[in-house]
Design a protein around this nucleic acid. Structure first.
Lengths: 392, 392
DNA sequence: TACTTCACTGCAAACCTTTGCAGGATCACC
DNA sequence: GGTGATCCTGCAAAGGTTTGCAGTGAAGTA
């Protein structure tokens, strides 16, 4: 990457001379405790002195040191948000919702990306531990036992994963996968593939389970392809495999993979949805922009972010950390609520799904892939008959 | 959003009993300073005691309190990353690059989103100030003077903005805009619109300046439309205006707006690139996925993230904060380097740009929008003649 | 043996803030 | 004028860690 240095000057202006509470106290002729109270309990200080102190503080550019304050109060008013992959458009709405919810309650959110790496996850929890009042773990890839262990270090709320004993926010991808499979079967598809995501993903397991059940119930054959990287590239890479497998419909682990798969199929000359139908999961903004527009299982990401923050803050106000006060040191264990919330998902039908092989005899191209014509699986030609459903 | 409470149990297991350096000291029968050294300067402690201390620490699950450590060392080994809009796909690659670069140097990155809100930006800098060793300001929306003022509170590196006296990482969008305009003029377009972004964006100003110059030089008329929100919605909203303006080509502030615009034009029945050519800026991953694929000015986001981290850390090692040591308190001003780096951009030509009105007499639809046929602006019919270029 | 050197460890101050406690002044009221 | 209440402020400890300084004992040197 060619880059050009335009300027390289040095200045000796404005180097950070940290101004502390002591400086303000000296300047305004009061004790530091009065300055402290001016900021954290203004009603306890004489209005006159208060304005004087505030003026001095303003003058000197004083800002309370949040780290030092946290050290003694045990509260930072920050919350950490650990994300598997910030480049996945699934997360930004969640982050935004969490951030706005936190802001309403006077908290700041710090986001950290782990690159889908379990080791990075653990390290980040440690790094955040004493600098935040709690951590939201979004789609974590580490083991349940490790999560439980880390939860002893800092309050945790887990999103997109079920960990017993910990507060969790879940999305009902099981129901979503079932709806998707039923939709495909309703369109006449009898051979369906499930594009798996990361091995250690809870969502992945839930989807597999639900899809298998739904396929069996609907008399369709379900092929498992994976695990794969939950990215566009991951989807693209598996296109060839999908074609060879001979399925006429695919449910992908998420929208990114679905879109990558459609790209890949396109490159192989396989048309979507005419030859293969594709369903994604998440309903990211992008899924409305691609051609064909993606049929997908919408997950309530915003609600998840808000709920997770609420649960964390609720848990947090119940048991302030760092309190070594009388009794708290010995009385191991403060009551802690570990509610688990399940959020609903919705199948939204767009243009990437169409009739199955048997259900489209006449109009091969002109068929408008309108929303859910609900063609029943036609008895059609016996050539592609697949006997009983085999769901593995 | 309907949601269902699945479980609401309470447990009294595993409440955080903070284990401190003192506990480890007591358990291993040494002074706390020895424990401290075991972690921060292992070579200073007897191997035998070291293993004993480490064993006890491991046993008790001790982790040094990073906040307390930072309080005295003045270094947190964190860096803050303030982003205008995390939902804009332009940023994730930058974030990832910054994160990986920081990790190599044993730093953690905390990201915060401001929703394009200048007030939130300021507040976040304050919140981060004492919890990080420096802050990367990406595409900030606040005033230069405020940025300078904040830089006295915490070391700052600014990305996508030029602030004199501060280290900056810039992308040469001026050059990019020029290349884009020249590309369009080369295709025969004589009436071009520039879709502006946020008013307070440095990039916006640079683009406007360069585009105006290039248009004037090439004898094209440049219409300014904006400011607009730098999002897909922002682009979509201005489609009608673009149509009415009668231009045959548009350079958008970024890819998101370009894509939104294409969507909007599509909804109005205006075809891209047959009737209107569109160029974006950023080359986000999405620009390869839409139809038509987007012609765009590629910006080196990864390099920007890495460079910014390097500059911050370099500046940081030069002048450790919090040092009130002899002399440092009185000697206002530590030398500080304020290099500015300009990174190159590249025009990548895809399918959203095609020949201008005069340059396509015969084949209105079959014309393959191949890369840069470089048709000169034909003398063509005088009906659409626009006299001299008017660039405002 | 006496003296220096060295490796290791303890002591205590320091970082910046909050907060329980107590002291002082002011005021009202009887 | 005495009593109590009220309001404001100062004092000092606490929070968890790092680090300069000094002290200990042992090893090395003359």
């Amino acid at each position: 990457m060619g880059h050009t240095h335009v300027t390289a000057a040095t200045s000796d202006e404005g180097a950070a001379v940290p101004v502390t509470i002591r400086d303000v106290a000296r300047a305004s002729g009061v004790h530091i405790s009065t300055v402290s109270r001016t900021f954290s309990a203004p009603h306890l200080v004489n209005p006159e002195t208060r304005v004087r102190v505030l003026a001095c503080a303003e003058d000197l550019g004083y800002r309370p040191n949040r780290a030092a304050r946290a050290l003694i109060t045990g509260r930072t008013h920050n919350i950490g948000l650990i994300i598997a992959d910030i480049a996945n458009p699934f997360f930004p709405p969640l982050i935004k919702a969490a951030e706005s919810q936190a802001r309403h309650r006077d908290y700041h959110v710090f986001v950290a990306d782990t690159n889908e790496d379990p080791t990075a996850e653990e390290e980040l929890v440690h790094a955040l531990a004493k600098q935040v009042d709690g951590v939201l773990l979004c789609s974590p890839r580490m083991s349940n036992s490790l999560i439980e262990q880390l939860s002893r270090e800092v309050p945790l709320v887990v999103v997109n994963r079920q960990v017993t004993g910990l507060p969790c926010v879940l999305m009902d991808v099981g129901q979503g996968a079932r709806a998707a499979i039923e939709h495909l079967i309703g369109l006449g598809h009898t051979r369906i593939a499930l594009l798996g995501g990361p091995r250690s993903s809870w969502t992945n397991r839930e989807m597999r389970r639900a899809a298998a059940t739904a396929a069996r119930a609907g008399g369709a054959e379900l092929t498992l392809l994976g695990p794969n990287a939950p990215t566009e590239t991951g989807g693209h890479a598996v296109a060839e495999q999908v074609r060879r497998s001979g399925v006429s419909a695919v449910l992908a682990y998420n929208d990114l993979m679905a879109i990558g798969l459609i790209e890949g199929l396109d490159a192989l000359g396989v048309r979507v949805p005419q030859e293969v139908s594709v369903v994604g999961v998440d309903d990211i903004a992008l899924s409305r922009l691609t051609r064909p527009k993606l049929t997908t299982v919408a997950t309530p990401t915003g609600a998840a972010g808000r709920t997770a923050v609420d649960m964390l803050l609720q848990q947090d106000t119940e048991s302030p950390r760092g309190t070594r006060g009388p009794g708290a040191g010995t009385a191991l264990g403060v009551r802690r609520t570990t509610a688990q919330v399940m959020l609903q998902t919705d199948l939204v039908i767009r243009d990437s799904t169409g009739p199955g092989p048997q259900a489209r005899p006449a109009r091969p191209l002109a068929a408008p892939p309108g929303p859910d014509p609900h063609c029943p699986a036609g008895p059609g030609t016996p050539t592609a008959a697949t006997g009983d459903a085999v769901a593995s």
